[in-house]
Design a protein around this nucleic acid. Structure first.
Lengths: 129, 129
DNA sequence: TATCACATGTGTGTTTTACATGTAGGAAGG
DNA sequence: CCTTCCTACATGTAAAACACACATGTGATA
């Protein structure tokens, strides 16, 4: 328990001792990333996992959570899936973007644009001071 | 319990029914925002609370969490505080940025810059498709 | 036959955020 | 004097998002 090494009250994701880990990630960013990848081409989870870092920077998405997100997307009709064996190796579950998922991607893009503008505002104010 | 109204498995912050709430916020963004405001001028929590929305867009920061963040910052020597009465109204706890806090702000700015670039990459790939 | 890479998952704890509530000083009005 | 409101600071707790560990099975290859 307590992998961080047992500090007292509030240990905020330390990278080095006495050093707050600051990564500035966008919440649930793997979600729009998945939708974008699936817009480009229907494919399966493991491949998405390998394609994600190019979009997210360093954030290699956790496998377990990736599959959970994919199934959540499917539950809400944003993607569909079908099993595909035949190729060498284990069966793959191929995900495809639906029209609804496409719309969600558009919303994400709009939100990410706003987010980028907020960051610009912040950074300008930072540099100006 | 379950204020959202008892949906099944995975309710992902719905804004309207059948509609995923997509806000694309940066994690812990209130933290660099606080540090930036305090770099400009030492002040107290309640005033920071009112100044924050201008930086964060819509995200009016939750009061309770704001004060918790401030005390966490203080615990790690990133800000200092002193009580100040004398003015009308209840006593205020005035926070001031330390040199260490200033350095943390610089790190945040670097991380936020990377984050902005990632968003640009994403958005370009989005528009290109 | 043991091991490795591919592929899909579940379990569970930690961190971060959201929502509700509590305490208290002082001004304004009845 | 009593109530109500605004300021200001704070705690309690549940939900959401995330990280880490592990389980399962296929097929290739050493």
């Amino acid at each position: 328990m307590r992998p961080g090494g047992g500090r007292g009250a509030r240990c905020r994701r330390m990278v080095r001792p006495g050093h707050w880990g600051v990564r500035a990630r966008v919440e649930r960013f793997s979600e729009p990333a998945l939708l974008l990848l699936l817009r480009e081409r229907a494919t399966h989870g493991y491949e998405l996992l390998e394609a994600l870092p190019a979009l997210t920077g360093e954030a290699r998405v956790d496998m377990g959570n990736l599959y959970r997100v994919l199934r959540a997307l499917e539950e809400d009709g944003l993607v569909t899936s079908r099993w595909e064996s035949g190729d060498p190796g284990p069966a793959k579950r191929i995900y495809e973007l639906t029209e609804q998922g496409r719309r969600l991607l558009d919303e994400w893009a709009a939100a990410l644009l706003r987010s980028r503008d907020r960051l610009d505002t912040f950074l300008q104010r930072y540099e100006g001071g």
